[in-house]
Design a protein around this nucleic acid. Structure first.
Lengths: 332, 332
DNA sequence: AGGAGTTAGTTATACGTAACACTTCCACGG
DNA sequence: CCGTGGAAGTGTTACGTATAACTAACTCCT
């Protein structure tokens, strides 16, 4: 290799192949049919190969006025769930020649005031998950195409949601069918629409059944936090079933129960939500609502691609499924 | 949309403020001291504010020939560990005005042949974690600045590693101190340098102690896989302690032990590695080597920034710490 | 034979920014 | 009163690409 000083440009390829830069662009952009002969095209490709040419994406983005890059805003990446959402979104994106860059909002990383400065990339669109309305409107201000995950469809905009309402239905019917009447709801202490929905729906469903009682406790989403919250809540009231907003909360309930000498499920049935790996690691395996995080991400990305395509996709709802395992049983 | 609004450019700001585009660039680029008066500068800033001006990153990247974006290549994002690495790397990056884009390699997403086409961004550098040598050399071919995580320092290049050797030392000393002599090593069935090191180091350490036996089993990194592998391995040989390459493997061992009627730790001590949330969710809580994933990511990013700065950082090793919990006890 | 149509290209330009080189104005020292 | 130098800008260019507009040669039809 004689040079290797600076990366080769399309002009270098052109020189090597003995054609104009425009011809290189045509051939490598796959828009050469009928414009360049097969032999010349092959010569160009060969030249590009020997020089190790890679198109300069910054230049291409500038020229085309679009970047084929979208931003995925997630509340946290520390659990499998949003990692799964990313994976699904990135898979679909990659299939369409798009890249996905992450912005773990809001307290996570960098200046929360400006997601777009932090994600250094130039963006074509945004997928925002479970965001506070305030942060959302900041994004809206930039009037980039936007798809919202886990957000109130009534607020307008394109939304993709898991059918959480149906998940809560499945949980309550399962537990009511096992004879449970005294419930504790261990909710997530996070101001997010999806958690409000869970609380509302559970309350509404139980209210319809005579003789039920429901108490509510809240905890940050962590095993340790849930353990403390559950221990406090279980010391007074004695429910026969605990419905948790998240598998991690359920794991905390297991630990609290053990401390209090309660056996799961003999003395206490427990349900979770998400179906993380954690759910089958603990003993007994957790009855939980399986949320397909990757599918969630895929649908979100598909919706955004549709928006970018000028379509107006209708709100999508993704079915969920109750996995009945060993943590729930007939009331004693 | 009322009208097809196109985003304002620095020229629009210039017109609004009654100055030249060059002046705008100077002011907004914070390079105006002594070149533009304070009053004019303020006028420019005001104009930018009212127009909602955002610099076009594609244009800036093209002009500057650098993107302030780096690629983080991770084997999988499905567990907290690499999510943590990302979080740490992104935190440091953001502090220096850099963005981080992810490439979950290799079978994960998109055409594994070309990480750079998949991550649509133009890149300044790469942090590659636990990669097969083959994929690494493909990256090297692009001669982008590269930092390797979890890779053999002897192979050359800039590396940042967790001090796994010391972690294994702590585990073996702990178990030997408790009187254990018959071991099972449940290794990860993944061709990665870091796992080879664990196996070698464990073997070497035990060989030095008279009267020890060590058997090895391998499993893919998943609870289910580990359960099966452990059940098979424990049926023949009966160790008193199982050393696992990963907390998820340890969780699988718990399940296998339960199936075989073995109590942890009374009949079987178990250790993990990583200290995921999982480690304290299972009962008894797992004795495991705490790896600080976020610190790992931070150090990796710092090393890459140093390389981009023209420095030649020496290989870094990050200390690890054994968390002794309830899954290990004195041999019966 | 004379255009119309096709093939195989080339030339020129614009995308938005940063920065170099240049100009103008003015104060001030000798 | 001229020259010097700093302050406060402006004009211009280049980064590498994609594409619209143009050209030149050939083929073919009537």
């Amino acid at each position: 290799m004689p040079r290797a000083r600076t990366r080769p440009t399309s002009r270098d390829v052109a020189r090597e192949a003995g054609v104009s830069q425009a011809a290189v662009s045509l051939v490598l952009g796959d828009k050469w049919r009928g414009r360049v002969s097969e032999t010349t095209a092959e010569r160009v490709r060969e030249a590009a190969r020997t020089l190790g040419y890679r198109p300069n994406l910054a230049a291409r983005n500038l020229r085309l006025g679009r970047t084929r890059t979208v931003l995925l805003v997630v509340p946290a990446l520390t659990t499998e769930f949003f990692a799964g959402v990313y994976t699904g979104a990135a898979r679909v994106a990659s299939r369409h020649g798009f890249g996905v860059v992450l912005y773990p909002s809001p307290e996570g990383i960098g200046p929360a005031r400006d997601p777009f400065a932090s994600a250094q990339a130039a963006l074509d669109g945004v997928i925002a998950s479970s965001m506070a309305a305030e942060a959302l409107s900041a994004i809206r201000g930039d009037q980039l195409p936007l798809v919202m995950l886990d957000s109130d469809p009534a607020a307008g905009g394109v939304t993709v949601n898991l059918d959480i309402t149906d998940g809560v239905r499945q949980v309550t019917e399962h537990l009511l069918g096992l004879g449970h009447r005294r419930f504790l709801h261990l909710g997530a202490d996070v101001p997010s629409w999806t958690f409000e929905v869970r609380a509302r729906e559970l309350e509404a469903r139980l209210r319809r059944v005579a003789g039920t009682s429901l108490r509510t406790a809240r905890s940050p989403i962590s095993i340790k936090g849930a353990e403390a919250a559950a221990e406090a809540a279980l010391s007074g009231h004695r429910p026969t079933a605990v419905v948790c907003d998240d598998d991690q909360l359920a794991a905390g309930v297991y630990k609290a129960a053990r401390r209090l000498g309660l056996r799961v499920p003999a003395d206490l049935s427990v349900t979770g939500m998400d179906d993380l790996a954690l759910a089958t690691a603990i003993d007994p395996e957790l009855t939980t609502v399986r949320l397909d995080a990757e599918l969630f991400g895929e649908r979100g990305m598909e919706a955004l691609l549709a928006v970018l395509n000028g379509e107006k996709p209708s709100g999508t709802s993704i079915p969920v499924h109750l996995e009945v395992r060993g943590s729930t049983t007939r009331v004693p």
